[in-house]
């Protein structure tokens, strides 16, 4: 079998006594799109943080194309080709939309080339009219789009999206789903989302986290029918 794009082995993160992520073994093939679901506090964001070097695992390993990146710095991992849209929009609030995208694009392009790339990206995420506004003044949904644009502009191999549809209108959610599918034509993705409609729109294979562990991993239709998943996840959400 070919080397997977991403693999974790017994990946673990403990905060004091809290086992946020515990012995997770996870594999993602080149070009795959995977959804990651699980109730609040299941450890999804923590898992992402370990994949991107924002947290150093308590133990276990992360392999990216066979290379151990468990202890690499965030910027090194980014340069290897993993981009992330974090749960809380992580953008340059004090700068304009254009400048935000430019900073991302100029990491891989020359200054002159970057300007052209920025215009393309602004068109792709539909923010040309807002190009010169400060990102901090935009609505939540639009800031999510800016962040997507930033991530795409660095042309990563693998994109992690932590709740990309949160705070979006129904229309925006659909547009985002479309974009995700489009991105998946060339890149691998892992998408964390609570919005089941959104998951239905994009997912093939789904991994369910619960209390820091992988509960099940299956095709989306089976996951949605799985009583165990219903109990821990949908049930909880309904109760909340």
């Amino acid at each position: 079998m070919a080397v997977p794009l991403l693999e974790t082995r017994d990946l673990t993160m403990h905060f004091g006594g809290v086992r946020a992520v515990h012995n997770v073994n996870f594999t993602l093939a080149e070009g795959e799109l995977r959804c990651l679901i699980g109730p609040n506090g299941a450890g999804k964001s923590t898992f992402f943080k370990m994949l991107t070097g924002q947290l150093e695992p308590s133990h276990g390993r992360v392999l990216f194309r066979g290379r151990d990146i468990s202890h690499a710095h965030a910027h090194e991992i980014a340069r290897l080709g993993i981009g992330i849209k974090t749960q809380v929009p992580n953008v340059f609030d004090g700068l304009s939309v254009r400048e935000n995208i430019w900073l991302a694009a100029s990491r891989i392009h020359s200054v002159r080339h970057a300007n052209g790339v920025v215009d393309e990206m602004l068109a792709r995420i539909g923010l040309i009219p807002a190009a010169d506004r400060l990102v901090g003044q935009l609505a939540h949904g639009q800031r999510q789009w800016v962040e997507l644009g930033i991530v795409l502009s660095t042309d990563p191999v693998l994109i992690l999206l932590d709740e990309p549809a949160a705070g979006m209108t129904h229309e925006e959610v659909q547009k985002t789903a479309e974009l995700v599918r489009e991105i998946n034509r060339t890149k691998a993705l892992i998408v964390v989302e609570h919005d089941m409609q959104f998951i239905r729109m994009i997912a093939k294979q789904v991994t369910v986290f619960n209390q820091g562990r992988v509960l099940v991993e299956d095709a989306v239709e089976d996951i949605l029918r799985n009583p165990l998943v219903r109990d821990i996840y949908l049930g909880k959400q309904a109760a909340a």
Partner: peptide, 24 residues
Amino acid sequence: SRFGRIIVGIRENERRAELLGYDP
């Protein structure tokens, strides 16, 4: 210059700059 714009980016959001691949 590119350098100047990047340091302002780092000032604005160091974590984001890192996740883009810049070493703050």
